[in-house]
Design a protein around this nucleic acid. Sequence first.
DNA 1: GGCACCGGGCTCTGCCATAGGT
DNA 2: ACCTATGGCAGAGCCCGGTGCC
Length: 384
Amino acid sequence: MASVCKALIGLHRCFILQQPFKCLTVKSITTRPLWRSYSVASDDDDPKTTLNPENESLLENLNLMGVDVKMARKRQPGVLRRLFTNEEAVALFLKRKGASSQTVASIISRYPRAITRSLEHLEQRWQLWRNIFQNDLAIVAILDRSPESFFRSSDNRNLEKNIDFLSSLGLSNKDLHRMFATAPRTFSNSLELNRQMVDFLEDVCYELGGTDPERFAKTIISRNLYILIRSTKRVKANVDFLKVSLKLSDAELLELLQGSGAKILDLSNEYIKKNMASLQGRLLMLGCGEEDVRKLITASPMVLYIGATTLRTKLDCLLKGGITAKQILEKPKVLDTSTQSVNARLEELQQIGYDFESNGIGILGLSQKRFAAKKEKLLPSKNK
DNA sequence: GGCACCGGGCTCTGCCATAGGT
DNA sequence: ACCTATGGCAGAGCCCGGTGCC
């Protein structure tokens, strides 16, 4: 069978050699690729379809596998024109790792280039991931969520170098694991790109008069695992924006960035600006001073994470419940609670006659468990 | 026991543009 | 001419509990 296949491939090559074919750039495919009888489109008048028709037996195969061919075509049309692909081997490989047929189909639909990877490449890449994860299913789950992260790069050596590099920064295994799980794209970045971000962070530290740039970079990355999938341009814009708009000294900015500010560094720059403006506008309108707002944001940069609309509804909801802007400034943690929870809690507390003026609003920012316990304690005394 | 402070956990893809290779 | 690999972007919060102080 294999020899027949080989012979056919040889024949096929002779046939297609006259064509300008880049379709044979199968440098990474080392397992036996599938040979197919692809029919040249009958409509010879159209040079496009004649020169680059889709591989019909591939389409058939994909259809049989339950792949959404329409989606695949939209995403990576070139893959459907390839003469040699590995869909069967890839599917088998993934299934052996515990992926269901639906998962496999969904992965290929969303990232068709997956079927151009060789078995050898896959085994290697999988092994590198397995050094981080305990079992195959954890990896399958990530592939199912984000096939592109796993399949986009064909460079396993680069993946290896990235792991080495990130480990060398002093990131713990736990951090690496979380990064693989939550920002897998990081590992498909070129080593150079990741290095650029780390260099950039270290430069920021230097410029702000910090003394331990390596620790600074490590801290920010570990606090914000998404940072490495952002552009330095974006992060720089955010650093600059925070510095100017919060009127921070170098030392203050340094503190902020490696503290709670790290989490908002990866936000889109326009978004962070919009949120800042909206927050300032609202609070000033409610009679807060500019300095109050500045202090609030410096102390709880996470408030900038909240979109303008969410913030507006949340503030409205608090105010309607009788909470004052001043109380919110004093206990910004309440903004950490979802509008839904805030609403529910306000209602529950109103029913038992809770007085925010004398008891404060801290109760609104507790975890569900602590809130329930606290409420439980309030009840009997109220009923007496 | 109660509170404040703080940090951590979860989570984040799917698309487009383009340089560069054949 | 066409394809691959890679960079970059928009999108948009909430919850939990340890610890230490009173």
